[in-house]
Structure formats: C-alpha cells, structure tokens
Design a protein around this nucleic acid. Structure first.
Lengths: 337, 337
DNA sequence: ACTTGGCACTCAAGCTGATCGAGTGCCAAG
DNA sequence: CTTGGCACTCGATCAGCTTGAGTGCCAAGT
C-alpha cells in the first residue's frame, strides 16, 4: 500500500521532469497527477525516495530530479514500451521500403530513428562476422596491386587493396578467383579462418606467394580487424538537450567508431530493447547520456544493432518503442534482399 | 600612405579578433602591434573603416569587429596562405600513406583536416562522373534480384540492387558481364550514356529485358543520380566557437549531403583554395560560417573537393594552408593507386 | 501508524542601483 | 594630418533586496 504510492510518486517525478526539464516539487506533483493525498504526504515519500537514492534535489530548496538509479527503476518496473500506432508503423514501413541498396537502408534507418525520437541515432551495418560470403572478386589495379572486393549475403561490400609480392598475370587471377569463390561461397565469415588455412594447397606452387597475400588480407579484413561500420545521425538534436558543458565530449564520443561499438555491443541480448542509463555507461564523456539499443535481423539470423543516444532525461517509453519498431522493420527489409 | 595604414589597422583588427574572440579597441591595437601612432589616430581610421563597412562595433562603446566584407578584404589582399613546415608536411604525408583503401584515405583525410584546423572538415569522395570504369561485377542474389557492383579507377565501389523483370540463369549473367566489361572498361563515366545506348545490340534478343534493367540502373546510378558521397568530421570543434544560438542550424546543415555539395561545389576552380565568407554563403543556417575549400587530385585529373567549415572569425591563413596541404597529399596518395 | 495543515527556513532567481572601466567621438592645439 | 584631452556611453560586475517555490519538521487529526 505504502510502497505502491512511493513508486507512483517516482513515476510521476520521472514523467514530469522528462517533459518539463525542471525539478518537480510536491505541489506540482499532486496538481498534475491525481494523487489524492496532500503535498505534505508526498514530501514524506520523497524524503524516503531521496534517502534510498532514487531522486535528489539540485539545491536545498528546489524540487527533485531522478537519479540514474531512479531512471533505472522507472525503466525496469514503472513503465511499458510505448507501442506505435498502426499508422505510424505503416509510415515507417513505407519509408524504409523505398530504399534501393544497403547503404540506403542504413541511411534511411538512421534518419528515421533520429526523427522519431528526436535524439541522436546510431546504426551499425550488418555485422561482417555474422554474414556469409556471396562472392569474391579480384580486380587488377597495377602490376603489384589488386583490389579485393568481398560481397556478403547482406548486401554489404567490403574492399581492400592488396599489395602483391610478385607480379601476376590475368590467368593467375582467374584461377585464384575461381578457387576463392569455390571455397568461400556461402561460408559464414566466422568459419573462414579454418577454410583459408587449407587454401594454399589448392593453388599452384608458383602462385603461392601472391595467393598468400590475398588470403592474409581476407583474414585481416574479416577476422582480425573486427572494426564494424557505424553511422550516426541527428546530432543536431543534441542542442535541444542543453548539455551546455558536456556537449563537446558527447560529440567527440560520437565520432569514435570504437566507442559506438561498445555502446551498442554491451548486451548480447538480441531480441529485446536494452537501456543503459547515465553512469552505467562506461564510456567517459557519455556519463550523462542514456542509450536505448536493440538488435535487428530475424531471431534466427541476428545482423547487428541500432539505437539512440540522448540525455538521461529522455522519454524512455517512446524511445524504446521507436527503437523496437525501427529495428523490426529494418530487419524485415534486409531479410527480403 | 594614409590608406596603407588603414589596411594595416584592418589586418590588425582581424588578427586580434580571431585570436582573442573579443572586440578590439584602439588602445589594445597600438599596444599589440607596433603601429607608431597614437590611439586617437587609430580611432579616426577605424571610423572611416566602419563607414566603409569593413568593421562594426557591437555596442556603442565597445571595440570593433570585422564584418564579412572586412574578412573578405583581409583574405583577398591582406594575408598570405600560411605554408606548412616540412616537419608538418612529412607528418601529413606519413599519416595519409598509412591508409589501405579508399574509405580509409577519405577517413584519414577528414580527421587530419579537422585536427589541423580545429574546425569541421568536409571531404567529398572522388567524383563518380570524373572516374573511369575499371570493372563491373554482377552477383545473383535471388531469382529476380541481382547485385550490380561497379568499381572505378579511383578505387571507389558503387553497389546497387537490380530488380530483374525476368528470371535469369548463370549463363546469361556470364554473358552480360562479359559484354559490360568489354564495353565499359576504361570508359569515363561521363561517356557512358552514349556507350550504354548501343549496348542492347550486343545481347541476345531473349535476354534484352534483363539487360535493359541492368543498363538503366547503371545510367541511373552514374548519370542521373548525381549524388556524391561526402563525409564530415570534427563536429565537436563547433562547440569551441560559441555559436550558442545557431549551433543547431549548423549541425543540421552539416547533415544534409546536398547542402554540403553546394558548399564545396560553388567554385570550379580546381587548383587553388577558395574561401566563402559568412553571408556570401547562400545556405541558410550557415550564414555565420565560412568555408575554405580546395579541389584535390592532380591538375590534369581533378577528383573532387574538400574543405573546412568554421565560424567567420577563423584563422584563414592557417586554414587555407592546411586545406591546400591536405588536398595536395590526398590527391597524391590517390594518384598512386 | 499514517496523514495533514501549519510554520519557519533555505536558497535560486530576478530586480535594482551604484560603480567601474574600456572605448568612443569630438575638438582644439601642434 | 596627428595628437592629447575630455566628456560621454554603455556593458559588465557586484551588492543588496525581494520574491516565491520548495523543503523539513512538528503537533494535531483520523
């Protein structure tokens, strides 16, 4: 009974603070929400909530604002993901369906997410390590250089220049290409290390040096260099949330691919929406931001992650709804390719 | 004689204001620069400069700050591009030389430029219309879909999904690929429209429908859709220049590819460094920023543009030096591929 | 045992007026 | 044309004051 009301109070505080951006006091609370108790009672509750670390007051005589812990409780127990209306879902679907290639899908996804949530959107390209090879192409550039193009079944295209130790002719390229495609086609990129290891046997001895160069680049690109491609959009939304001080830090963090990977990658939970709040985030400079992320791709075929980054005082239910919806449709679109 | 000093005063005002970010008065001027006249004389000069529209005072009793017109005069007549020391040039060179493919070159270029100038850097990918085809690859995706991959001699790789009107088999793909490569290899993309027009004759009649689909996508990608790829870096540098108000607008503008194209593309002057100051810029929201841009690529083979965007009160000589140096070395690196 | 109204208290925000000082414009003398 | 002098302007800074939202606590009520 008692505890119930305290939770209601916390929820009310979070909701009010998110919408007004101002510390919320006991009077405003009983006014806006129809708690049928007096402000004094609320004050008592708030004192307890503060003692337990869910809220704080910025100045001795100001209203309360939620702490990271408060938001955490709110997200976990006091709120539900806000579902999207069918109209909205249709809009999302048609917007994404207009895309004509992978780059375009990702670009549209990031824009959409930024616009829906009015936050910074972050979308990871379909992960290399989870894709399978669809085709390998070798294109001679100069006498000693070769362009290696690798096409995955998610439509992603990776390219690398290979420095060849020896000169090569057209024939050897054709042969090498045939071998590569025969062996790699359809293989998951995670399995490739093993496959590549036994490749040299299939190549004529005099071509081994060149072949080895190509193989090592493949490995390097796909396995060792785990660098994933991520794009960011809606940075201008950061100006609305007055970070004032920390804005620079946040922008800097958002330019670091590695940092973004960490942000999205922290949970492996593919299906559901993950929320990381404030200091839970171990990235320096994003201590005052929250991340709402989800994986996309079908359940049996996870591709990568996407999400939004915003101030801790963000509208979690809506953001979570948007992230979930966009993840679903993006996954769906990509599954069709 | 007289006019000479007024110009010196303007130069001094620009330099001081750029370095201090504060309106500069007559006293400070004679102190910091060794003009051997009295403050009163300077005041007279400033009155004239103000009347002519080169400087203004923000408040009745404050120092002067340069107007756009003032910066323009400064850039055109009163300053020289600051050359880079050999040490700096070597650093640039080695940093760029570490890149292993086109994406990496562009990424490094944008980072470098942002870091050198402490502004926002903008780099355009080597222009499609100025490249030549090196290889065309077709990869079957599903029964009705084909991935078209187009590799240019600048190492740029373009991909598009083609919806095929009819089903196709492996043989027809092989044939089509052969025809495409035979006809397009080495052709400038600007010439391609003509070449593609006569392509259908070379394909067996029953394959014409599919072939036509592929051709039209090629045309669409390369000719009609003139959309060029641009990347931006160093957005966090905007926080240093206290736009306060307009920051949002600037960030928004920087997210629009089309706007960026306009920014860089305004001049066709390939060789030299171009400066666009404040309101000279017709992009709304970038009225308080300046753009320093240059083309890169060798003189006989222009590739694309790059530059920096910053507040009008920026250090033009240094920025111009950096842009010129980076453009040179990036062009050089790409010429080697 | 909880709720409630009352009350004293705190403290940020906002207003006012005074002061300060950088900077200007103008003028008369050099 | 330059220069020193001088009156003037006006933003910035600071102290002092008021206001009001909000709190904590307590004693009384249910």
């Amino acid at each position: 009974m008692v505890d119930d009301r305290k939770l209601a109070v916390l929820r009310a505080i979070v909701e009010d603070y998110v919408s007004t951006h101002e510390p919320v006091g006991s009077r405003a609370l009983v006014d806006r929400h129809n708690l049928d108790v007096s402000p004094a009672t609320i004050r008592n509750d708030m004192a307890v909530l503060e003692e337990q670390g869910y809220i704080v007051q910025p100045h001795t005589s100001a209203g309360r604002i939620p702490t990271d812990k408060g938001y955490r409780l709110f997200v976990d127990k006091l709120s539900a993901i806000k579902p999207f209306s069918t109209a909205e879902r249709r809009a999302i679907e048609t917007f994404l369906a207009g895309a004509y290639d992978l780059d375009d899908v990702v670009m549209r996804t990031v824009r959409l997410l930024a616009q829906l949530t009015r936050q910074v959107a972050v979308v990871q390209y379909p992960s290399l390590s989870k894709s399978a090879v669809r085709h390998v192409e070798l294109v001679p550039l100069t006498e000693h250089r070769l362009l290696l193009v690798l096409i995955t079944d998610t439509g992603r295209v990776e390219q690398r220049v290979v420095e060849m130790p020896a000169t090569f002719d057209e024939d050897s390229i054709v042969q090498l290409r045939a071998v590569l495609n025969a062996c790699l086609d359809g293989r998951k990129l995670t399995d490739i290390a093993a496959v590549v290891a036994e490749l040299p046997e299939r190549v004529e001895p005099r071509e081994r040096a060149n072949a080895a160069a190509v193989f090592s680049v493949i490995l390097e690109t796909l396995v060792a260099r785990h660098e994933e491609k991520i794009i960011v959009g809606g940075a201008s939304n950061l100006t609305a949330a007055d970070f004032s001080q920390g804005l620079r830090e946040v922008l800097e963090a958002l330019e670091e691919q590695v940092v973004l990977m960490r942000l999205l990658g922290e949970s492996d939970d593919q299906a559901s929406v993950t929320v990381t709040i404030g200091a839970e985030n171990d990235v320096l400079g994003l201590r005052r931001t929250s991340v709402v992320a989800a994986g996309y791709g079908s359940a049996d075929r996870p591709l990568a992650k996407l999400g939004v980054v915003g101030p801790t005082r963000m509208d979690y239910p809506t953001a979570m709804g948007a992230v979930r919806a966009v993840a679903r449709y993006t996954g769906q679109i990509l599954a069709e390719s």
